[in-house]
Every structure is written in structure tokens, then in C-alpha cells.
Design a protein around this nucleic acid. Structure first.
Ligand SMILES: [Mn+2]
Ligand SMILES: [Mn+2]
Ligand SMILES: [Mn+2]
Ligand SMILES: [Mn+2]
Lengths: 218, 218
DNA sequence: AATCGTATTTGGACATGCCTAAAAATACAT
DNA sequence: ATGTATTTTTAGGCATGTCCAAATACGATT
């Protein structure tokens, strides 16, 4: 399994490529910042190896073994991210790039020991679930903050945009995973929200709310 | 800098390629388990990039920047080996393969944090010195146990053969770095040695003694 | 059902890094 | 000094993974 193949499988997984949903050549090319013709080439190769199902002009989806492989890469990526934050004091906006490299290190033992060192974490620094060794993981209960009604309350559980820019913005404004957010009001004019967080009121734009996942509280 | 280029530079370094000593195409090929023609190709490319000096039919040596790069790879390799042993409880015969992969991860910050986490170690699990960030490292004072005279005493500081087989043999016989070894007798017949180690007498073959580095004691 | 615009595939090409077989240079022995 | 053995280089090819430009298929519109 080459690094390129692993990256394609991971991308198809992230784009939701399953038996029920085919992923288009263009979507993959865009996500990977490569060209559609390259994707076609690789789709053929992966189909040849039984890692994806591929029908010309239709799109690709992960096979059973393809999914297993993709999950193992995602597992490694997210565990390394936790390691970087917890053990090496990286901030959550610095870890993705490095994890993109570390996820390709080939050693069962290494990733199992990292997992154990970290105490078998269930979520990565961005709130994304970490698949277990045998590929099981829980989709977390979530909705976008922008979909909540005034008066309701939620706990911040994840981010949709994981860009360094957005994550740094959240740091600067003291918004972190685990924080409880109450929606006070939504402006008709620009959909900006007034929220209460950590006992303080603040105003955030619709775009911010549209990139924050919360778990609704009763 | 590609992974292949890094591996060539590291190999040239290990073969002692300096201004005073040219390394032959064949030697590199053998060490890297590749073909001489491939080495010639790469030698040209590295010379092109200013990382080695290369004269046709003569051999290659590291340039100043080539040496710097090689040292940084060696540094990373050895720090990762320490990390695997100290932090993740790998045994010293399991770390080399994984370190061969980890040494190519590109992140200053990562290796600096690992270095700090480990308390800035000076030697790797096999007794090899770890170059500092700016490429400085101390050649340790050493000689092969097989070169010592009966009656003399030394401290075990390193291994020449780093194969898993040899390292496991040492474990099994409770010979570890830091142990004090006294040479009691050397057999004329087969050069095997009787030594005292950890208060016990034992006999080891010439081949073993020929792969153990010790620091002579007064 | 024909047309048009977009998505996708094909064909040909290039860079990297490797290989084999043959040619050339060097080293060694007589 | 000459011939032989060894080392090294060259030439040509292959695999991987990428790209561009041209051809083809799809699907929405009329
Ligand atoms: Mn990430
Ligand atoms: Mn993440
Ligand atoms: Mn090693
Ligand atoms: Mn070592």
C-alpha cells in the first residue's frame, strides 16, 4: 500500500464514499488538489486491487477492505493529533500537517503503544471520533450552532472548518470544545448570534456559528 | 529533499564520506541493497544540488550542506529510537526499522519537542551519539572488547552489530550498556574470552567480543 | 430528438527512482 | 607494458504518480 493509495482511500472516506453513495472524480480531485485525470488513473488502480468499486463515469466507493484501510489511516491520523497536543504541547491548529505525515508510518505496535500512552482517547483535538483498532467508532451527536433556536443551549463538541485561521480565532475568543453555549438572540439582519459562553455575552457571525458543532442540551 | 535523497546522504555519512575520504559507488550500493547504476544516477543528482562532491570513477563525499542534512537525519533517527525505548517501551532490537520511517518526518518543532520530552539525551539505545540541533556530537571513546588485554577492565558503551539477533543475544545473557566487564582470560585456541560481568564469570566467543564496544577503565 | 455545457476519460508526456545489459575506465597481475 | 578482472558508467526500459489537451459521455434544456 503506497502513500498515494492511502491518501486516495482516506479522501474517498471523508467524502462519504460508501455502497450507498458514489464519490465523483471531480470531488476527489478538488479535495486532493489534483487533476481529475489523475483521479481516474488511481481509481482504476484501486479497483484493480479490490479497494474500491469503480464504474466509469459513475464514481467510486470504498470496498470492505478499502473502508478498513481508510479507517486505519484515519485512526492513526487522529491518534497522532492527540499525541501532539497532549504529550508534546502542540496547539490544535498546528497538528494536522504533521499528522498527515505520521499517519503513513507503518507499525501496528507503534500506533497501539501511542494509543495506550494516551489512555485510549475517543476523540481527537478537533472533536472527531477515533476509530478503534477494529474500525468501530461512534458518530457523535451534533448539529451546527447555526441551526439552533434562540433560547436553546448546547455544548461545543467539534469544528467543521479545521483551518488554522478558524482554530486560532476560537482560541483568541476563548471558545473551546466542552464549553456550554446558550443562544440569546439571532439578528434578523445578518443572522449574527448573541451567545452566552463562560458567563459572558458575545456576538458571533453566522459564518462562525455555521462552523461550530454543538450537542443540544435539554 | 526527497526520502531517497535523504537515505543516500545518510548512507554516505555512515560510510565516512568526508573531504578526506571518498565513498565508492559499490560501497553505497551494497549498503543500500541497490545497484551501482542507481547510485551513479543519484550521485549526479545530489552533486547537481550541491549536496555531494562527485568525480566520475572516483567516488562521492558530502558537501558542507550535505553533511548538515545527513546529521539532521541521523539526529532524528536516534532521537526517535530513544523515544520508542523510553516512552513507548520498545526493546532496543525493535526500534531501528520504525526509526527508518520516522526519521523522514518533516517538522522542526516535532523533533525539538521529542528531544525536550526525552531530556536531551546524548546517546541512542545502542550507544550511538546523538548530534545536537547544530550538528555537534561527541565521538565516544571506545574500543572493541576483542582488542583488550586479559586483566583489563572496561565499561560497555556500544554495539557494532546492531542486528536484532545480536541484541537479543545480549539481552538473554544479561549484557547491557553500562555494564562493567573484566577480561579474565583469552583462549589461544579460538580467541574466546572468559569475562567477569555483574559479579559472574562467563565465556563469550571472539565474534561476540568483536561486536561490543567498551570504554577502558584505569 | 437534437443541442449544449459540464464531467470524465483517453492518449501522450514528464519526473523520480529503480533495473539490466553492454561499454568504458580503472586497478591489478604477470 | 600488456592483458585480465573489477568497478563504474551509459543506454535503454519499467513502474508510479502526476499533468495537459483532446475526445467522449452524460444530463439538462429545448
Ligand atoms: Mn487532521
Ligand atoms: Mn483532527
Ligand atoms: Mn538505528
Ligand atoms: Mn541506533
Amino acid at each position: 500500500m503506497t502513500r498515494a493509495e492511502e491518501n486516495y482511500l482516506k479522501t474517498i472516506f471523508h467524502l462519504g464514499g460508501s455502497s450507498s453513495h458514489l464519490v465523483s472524480t471531480n470531488a476527489i480531485a478538488e479535495q486532493m488538489e489534483t487533476k481529475p485525470s489523475s483521479v481516474t488513473d488511481m481509481a482504476k488502480k484501486l479497483a484493480e486491487k479490490g479497494l474500491v468499486e469503480y464504474t466509469k463515469y459513475q464514481g467510486v466507493s470504498l470496498s470492505k477492505t478499502g473502508l478498513k484501510t481508510a479507517l486505519s489511516i484515519v485512526r492513526k491520523h487522529r491518534l497522532w493529533e492527540v499525541f501532539l497536543v497532549e504529550t508534546l504541547d502542540f496547539s490544535w491548529d498546528e497538528v494536522h500537517e504533521v499528522a498527515e505525515q505520521l499517519e503513513h508510518i507503518k507499525s501496528e505496535k507503534l500506533i497501539d503503544r501511542i494509543d495506550s500512552l494516551l489512555g485510549y482517547p475517543k476523540f481527537d483535538p478537533h472533536g472527531d471520533p477515533i476509530p478503534s483498532k477494529d474500525g468501530v467508532f461512534f458518530e457523535r451527536e451534533q448539529q451546527l450552532l447555526s441551526e439552533m433556536k434562540p433560547g436553546s443551549t448546547g455544548v461545543c463538541v467539534g469544528v467543521k472548518d479545521t483551518s488554522s485561521n478558524f482554530l486560532k480565532f476560537l482560541d483568541k475568543n476563548k471558545i473551546a470544545l466542552g464549553d456550554t453555549i446558550e443562544i440569546v438572540e439571532i439578528e434578523d439582519f445578518d443572522q449574527s448570534l448573541t451567545i452566552t459562553i463562560n458567563g459572558q455575552n458575545m456576538s458571533i457571525s453566522h459564518q462562525i456559528a455555521n462552523n461550530l458543532y454543538v450537542k443540544k442540551q435539554e
